Simulated assay, not measured.
Amino acid sequence: MEGKENKELFALIGRNISYSFSRGYFADKFSDLGLDNHSYVNFDLESLKELTVKISENKEVLKGMNVTIPYKLEIFDFLDEVDKEAEKVGAVNTIKIEKDGKLIGYNTDVYGFQKSLEPLLKQHHKHALILGTGGASKAVAHVLETLNIEFAFVSRNKKDNESYLTYNELNSELMNKYFLIINCTPLGTYPDIEKAPNIPYLCLNEKHLLYDLIYNPSETTFLKEGKERGATIKNGLEMLEQQAEKAWEIWNK
């Protein structure tokens, strides 16, 4: 069993998640609050089918979970209820476990992303490119809608959705329209730090704002390329921290 009987256990669900800072963030938080009976672990699952066993093994102590790549959409099948905003977004990244064992899904990525993005926005950030179409991109799209910023998804191919742009279609004309670019793909995450989305970096300038949901490394190749051309850059660490605080609030309400 992961966690002792007298403990309150929290977990991160994902695949290949040793890079994640969540465990360290909550370990520090529990230490600061003097919560010696709280712990946070990684449920690194090859398949989400393994989740039922993990929950069963820890049912006496498990109180809440976060969800990361690649399970933010698939997790819906395991939930008893979904919060209205998470349902609207179409992705869940936080789960509260009720006393009766019910699993309730929430999305705190929306809160974290909006809180960290808004201070950086300028008048000319009217249009955005969202790189990637997974669960995190849905939270980003929801925030952009709220902020009245028009956006387009960029995917590797058209088969995902005919309205998506492909990386091959990105040209100087589009890059001079879309001054906000958000990377929601895992490209560039540690240890594969040399990787980056295939956008025309030569078209970037000081008007661009590049936001990467990745925070490990703190400056991805995507962000470095933007910085070299005068763009404003932001990694996902503040978003992680803000969404984690929101999750903590949900687990304790």
Rank of each mutant, 00 (worst) to 15 (best):
T94S: 15
T94Q: 13
I95Y: 11
K96L: 15
I97K: 12
I97L: 14
I97N: 07
G101T: 11
K102I: 00
L103I: 00
I104N: 07
G105S: 14
T108M: 13
D109V: 03
V110F: 12
V110I: 05
V110L: 11
Y111R: 01
G112D: 08
F113A: 13
Q114F: 02
K115H: 15
K115W: 02
E118T: 15
E118N: 10
P119T: 01
P119G: 03
L121M: 10
L121V: 08
K122W: 10
H124M: 06
K126I: 03
H127V: 02
A128Y: 11
A128W: 12
A128V: 11
I130V: 15
I130P: 14
I130Q: 11
I130D: 12
L131H: 02
L131W: 04
G132S: 07
T133N: 12
T133Y: 13
T133E: 05
G134R: 05
G134D: 03
G135V: 11
G135H: 09
A136Q: 04
A136F: 06
S137E: 10
K138C: 04
A139W: 05
A141V: 00
A141F: 00
A141H: 01
V143Q: 07
V143S: 03
L144Y: 05
L144N: 03
E145P: 04
T146L: 02
T146H: 06
N148E: 02
N148Q: 05
E150F: 02
E150W: 00
F151V: 00
V154Y: 05
S155L: 01
S155T: 08
R156S: 09
N157G: 12
N157T: 15
D160L: 03
N161Y: 03
N161T: 03
E162D: 06
E162F: 04
E162K: 07
S163P: 03
Y164H: 10
T166D: 05
T166K: 02
Y167N: 06
Y167E: 09
N168L: 03
E169Y: 05
L170R: 11
S172L: 06
E173P: 02
L174C: 02
F179A: 10
F179E: 08
I181D: 15
N183A: 06
C184V: 04
T185S: 10
T185Y: 14
